[in-house]
Amino acid sequence: MTMLASIVHVMCALLLAPALPGVITRVKAWFAGRRGPPLLQAYYDLWKLLHKGAVYSKTTTWVFVAGPIVGLACAMTALLIVPMGGTAGVLSFSGDFLLLAYLLGLMRFFTILAALDTGSSFEGMGASREAFYSALAEPALLLGLVAMTAQSHSLSISGMVAAVTPVAIASPAGPALLLVAAALLIVFLAENARIPVDDPNTHLELTMIHEVMVLDHSGPDFAMIQYAATLKLWVLGALLVGILVPVRSGWWGVDLGAGIGGMVALAAVVGVIESTIARLRLVRVPQFLVAASVLSILALVLVMR
């Protein structure tokens, strides 16, 4: 039965992930007093891109083509590992969180290489920043998960998240869990190229991080990149929702429903954050990310105390 729930989660994620950016832009539009694009805009974009041809730069090699493919494959595999609340991941074993973190690393590795493959200085700049920030975000993510291991005594990410029950939050370890959530929120925003780290809607290539790296991709390749980005949003969001929505009723349908509701709420929260907070100056971003690591370590210290 639990396996069925896990598979249903993966299916839901594959289908619903592109709706999340829709929710975010809708909330932002509401804040700005506009109507905003339809909720399903991302699906329309994907559909359109999948039906286009492609343009490749003469400079590029197979690495450029491999970038989107490996990226999407990594995001999909990561989706198999990540749990949604009490619903365990399809693939769950001791230390699976390391595989999850490093799959995201592999995705980034190929995205950066594909960006460098074009020889464009704009894309090189984006690649440099991505490498820079993710090197700082990775310790924050893993240290947060280490704190959860110490709290739950489980070495598998599904076990860690399943251990976050209302009882656990009301226990002395509760504050630590909230700290982990705060750290993961920072990682979530940074890894998904969201304000205050990166602005997906900026109009100047010089100021972008993620979007500038994929400037040269087109057609189905770009569709894969967009889809992988929404899946990554889902993967990291599911971790966060797993801590913040501790619904563990025992009926998998209810748990999963609460989790997916939590995802939508999280997207709305991101919309609020993007509407109310200004983007950080690039030189201040490292400090923001180090702060996430500090929060994680603090949580670890609190749990082990």
């Binding site: 009301a170 226990s171 002395p172 509760g174 504050p175 630590a176 700290l179 201040r284 400090q287 702060a291 500090v294 603090l298 609190l302």
Partner: peptide
Amino acid sequence: MNVWLDTLLVLLILTNLHMLGSSR
């Protein structure tokens, strides 16, 4: 009771860290 105290203490730690990291 104890949980609330702990939470407040954690918040106190966070205010300290915030002072160290704040530029304003």
